[in-house]
C-alpha cells in the first residue's frame, strides 16, 4: 500500500476522531471521577447493537434508533453504579471487564436477537444481508455533494466523515473542558482524590460518580454508533476487550489528566496502529501481513507497560496530578 495514499490517511483520520470521542468517555469516568472502567467497550457494543437491531428488525428511523441506543448504553452505565460505588479499584477493573465480556458473549450467543457470530449481517435472517446505515450514508452523501460544490473540489465521502467526526469531537472536547474548569469539575476531582473529604464538604459523592458514569456511557455510545456507521458491518469480534485498552493507551499517550491531550493521543495511537501495516520494508517485511495484526496488538501491550513503567503521566501529563495510586 502506498505510504502517501490520501484515501488511507483520511480513513485513519476518521477512526482517530471516533477513538478521541471514545477516549473522552473514558476520561470522564477514569480521569475525572477516578473510576477504572475496564469495560468501556460495553457501551459501544450495546449502542451499536441496539441501533442496528432497531433499524433492521423494527424499521425504526435511524435518528430515533440512535437515541434508543444511547439510552440503552446509559442503562448499562446505571448497572455499573453498584460496583463503581462499592468496589476497590482492582476489583472494579475485574468486574467491569467481565461485564464487557458478558455483553460480547450475549451478542455472540443470542443469534435470534443479534445475528450471532457473523454480527450485523445476520440481523435480517439467512440469505438477507442487513444494512443499518443507509440513512446515514444518504446524509453523508448529501453533505459530500454540498461540500464539493462549496469548495469547488471533489470531496470524498470519508473526508466529509472525517470533518464531521472531528468537528463533533472538537465541540465535545470544548464542552468538557468548560465543565472540567467549572465548579462541577473541581468537585469531580475532589471525589477522585478523596471521597471522604468531598463528602465531608457536603458533596453528594454518589451523585457525582453517577453523573460521570452516565456521561461516559453517552460518549462511549456515540463513538460506538459512529464506528458502526463508518465500518458498515460489525460483529462481536469488533468489540473485544482490547478496544477499551486502546482508549487507555490514548489517554496515557497524551497524558492521563490532560483533556486537550486526548486528540493528540488519538492521532498518535491511530497513526502508530494503522501505520504499522505500511512498514513493509526489510526486516519487517519478514513478518507476513497476518502476523502484523498480532504485532500491532503486541505493540499496544508493550506501550501500555512501557508508559506505565517509565512515564505514567504520559507525554504531556503532569506527574503531580496522577490518578493511579488508588
Amino acid at each position: 500500500m502506498d505510504f502517501l495514499n490520501p484515501a488511507f490517511w483520511t480513513f485513519v483520520a476518521v477512526i482517530a476522531g471516533i477513538y478521541a470521542i471514545m477516549a473522552l468517555g473514558l476520561y470522564v469516568q477514569f480521569s475525572l471521577a477516578g473510576l477504572p472502567n475496564f469495560g468501556h467497550v460495553a457501551f459501544m457494543a450495546t449502542a451499536a447493537y441496539v441501533m442496528a437491531i432497531l433499524v433492521v428488525r423494527y424499521h425504526v428511523p435511524l435518528a430515533i434508533a440512535s437515541i434508543g441506543a444511547i439510552a440503552a448504553a446509559v442503562a448499562v452505565g446505571l448497572l455499573l453504579a453498584g460496583p463503581a460505588l462499592r468496589l476497590r479499584a482492582d476489583y472494579l477493573a475485574i468486574a467491569t471487564i467481565a461485564g464487557g465480556e458478558i455483553v460480547r458473549y450475549l451478542a455472540m450467543n443470542l443469534p435470534e436477537l443479534t445475528g450471532g457470530p457473523i454480527g450485523s449481517m445476520g440481523l435480517a435472517g439467512p440469505g438477507n444481508i442487513a444494512m443499518y446505515n443507509q440513512d446515514w450514508l444518504a446524509l453523508l452523501n448529501r453533505l459530500t455533494a454540498a461540500l464539493s460544490q462549496a469548495s469547488g473540489h471533489a470531496v470524498s465521502r470519508d473526508l466529509t466523515m472525517a470533518l464531521l467526526v472531528w468537528t463533533f469531537a472538537g465541540l465535545l472536547l470544548l464542552v468538557f473542558r468548560r465543565m472540567e474548569k467549572s465548579p462541577w469539575g473541581r468537585v469531580m476531582k475532589a471525589v477522585r482524590e478523596d471521597e471522604t473529604a468531598a463528602a465531608a464538604a457536603g458533596k453528594n459523592v454518589f451523585s457525582f460518580k453517577l453523573q460521570a458514569l452516565i456521561l461516559g456511557a453517552i460518549l462511549g455510545a456515540i463513538s460506538g454508533l459512529l464506528l458502526a456507521w463508518q465500518i458498515g458491518i460489525f460483529s462481536p469480534e469488533d468489540f473485544q476487550p482490547t478496544l477499551t485498552f486502546y482508549a487507555y493507551l490514548i489517554l496515557i499517550l497524551g497524558g492521563l489528566n490532560r483533556l486537550w491531550a486526548i486528540p493528540v493521543g488519538a492521532v498518535l495511537f491511530s497513526v502508530l496502529f494503522s501505520g504499522t501495516r505500511l512498514l513493509n520494508f526489510f526486516p519487517l517485511s519478514l513478518i507476513d501481513s497476518g502476523n502484523r495484526a498480532f504485532l500491532r496488538l503486541f505493540l499496544v501491550g508493550f506501550l501500555l507497560v512501557l508508559f506505565m513503567a517509565l512515564r505514567p503521566q504520559g507525554l504531556l501529563g503532569n506527574r503531580k496530578e496522577l490518578l493511579l495510586e488508588k
Binding site: 477504572p36 475496564f38 476497590r88 479499584a89 482492582d90 477493573a93 485498552f245 487507555y248 496515557i252 501500555l304 507497560v305 506505565m308 513503567a309 505514567p312 490518578l323 493511579l324 495510586e325 488508588k326
Partner: peptide
C-alpha cells in the same frame, strides 16, 4: 505504582 497502574501493566 498503585492498583490501577498494576492492573494496566
Amino acid at each position: 505504582r498503585g492498583l490501577v497502574a498494576m492492573s494496566l501493566i
